[in-house]
Write a protein that binds this DNA or RNA. Structure first.
Lengths: 246, 246
DNA sequence: CGCCTTATTGAACCCCATCAATATCTGTGG
DNA sequence: CCACAGATATTGATGGGGTTCAATAAGGCG
């Protein structure tokens, strides 16, 4: 069946109707017919914050799309030091295609909804819809750009700069519903606890806490609670993300 | 070796005959006919160590394959601090497809030979050879895995561990011609000067130098000169890459 | 409330950066 | 071949930013 001749909304699986991934995510390139077949192998999961979504061994065998929430990708040294190597938001794709194994574990950072499917289902879809691989490729390139930006942050920025960089990053990915005011002011929720922020920025919990306190005293951020931040001037915050001194 | 590409050797452009990228690189998926057409838009360049290959503005408009040598990808903060975010070897592809701009600059780390071509030429080839995009996708995923490994190194490892990790990484990518002994022992050339190693590892030149000296005194490495290193026991070096203490 | 998790604040130490001097390497020309 | 100059690398002394260890505070939920 041909997608072009047959776009009837009634054919779109219930599962997919309200899914962001169907538009901006990888499923956006699939026809209703293809969506139906993929959705037969798909299951929707609700995962509490902290739960593992894909173990390192599994992340090449099973894939998923984020429907809601924030997902962290983490790596470990053999002696247990942890580094977060990426944060993902709806409608991002999760998993490592074209590999047998990965050493990244995929965990829910907030409460998360995902829709997951086996490797085979994706492989089959890619065979008939080459555009699907293109979408995956574009996401991989975006993640690569992002990972390299974090390399600059981790390798060359000071603690105050790292925290400011992190908050600026979150502001850009903020859920529109928690943004309120236009322009330079923004309020959003930090989808990580302090320990995770530390693991992302290559710092300790204590240093993160101290830096946030400093930002508070300078009026750069206003904490409504541990997680909700108001940034009166995003441009001021951004300027702190790249200058060493106070 | 692929039958399709080798039935008529005479059809393969001279430029491509001795090129590694034709087999392991992205050109491996092209037919002789396609190689001929691509090679008409291709120019070969020799670049001295330190020279810029693609400026950040250009890296989305013009692409290249590495024929020989080592290439560094660098990022800068606004006040000039530098971080190397990737090292690339033959036959890697250089450039940022599907984007108008990039903030990564591409420089020769050693003397380098590349073969470069305009964006349009690649786009045209991808249209007729979907396998081409697949190769690019796979390289992007490898680079992503690598960037995330460096994030762990930059965020969570100590200076001694970083240097050991770096040398282990080089040993794995070492030009086979400088490898001599089998098994656990290896000799190779460091394709970066100390300042570049520092910019890669998020350290200073002095710290890198001191750590190499320590490795020398511990018998982990033997320096034949500033660039050529002998590693008697690669497994010992690797074990230092993940343990904090001496 | 009372317990547990999470976050903040304080004080002391240490790893690595910084500043400074010396050494070595590389190439060039006398 | 050696002398010299510029770039690159090593080594030393000092200081500071961030960690570590420790205590207190604040949320979240029964």
């Amino acid at each position: 069946m041909n997608a072009r001749t047959d776009i009837h909304n009634s054919e779109i699986p219930v599962l997919c109707r309200s899914c962001e991934a169907r538009h901006r995510g990888i499923c956006g390139v699939l026809s209703p017919d293809q969506l139906v077949r993929l959705s037969k192998q798909t299951t929707k999961h609700d995962l509490a914050a902290g739960r593992e979504i894909l173990a390192p061994e599994a992340s090449a065998q099973r894939f998923a799309n984020i429907l809601k929430g924030v997902v962290k990708l983490t790596k470990l040294t053999s002696d247990g030091r942890q580094q977060i190597v990426g944060l993902q938001f709806a409608p991002d794709f999760l998993g490592r295609p074209f590999s047998q194994q990965s050493d990244v574990s995929v965990e829910a950072s907030t409460d998360v909804k995902v829709c997951s499917f086996p490797r085979k289902a994706l492989v089959a879809m890619m065979a008939e819809a080459p555009e699907l691989e293109h979408r995956l490729h574009e996401q991989a390139l975006r993640e690569l750009d992002e990972a390299r930006s974090w390399m600059l942050t981790l390798g060359r920025k000071t603690a105050p700069e790292r925290v400011a960089t992190f908050l600026s990053f979150l502001a850009e990915h903020a859920d529109p519903e928690v943004q309120e005011k236009p322009g330079d002011s923004i309020t959003f929720e930090i989808p990580l606890k302090r320990a995770d922020i530390a693991d992302f920025l290559g710092l300790t919990i204590e240093t993160v806490s101290r830096q946030i306190t400093k930002l508070r005293h300078k009026g750069i951020v206003i904490l409504h609670n541990d997680r909700v931040v108001e940034v009166p001037s995003l441009s001021k915050l951004r300027s702190l993300a790249e200058q060493e001194h106070d």
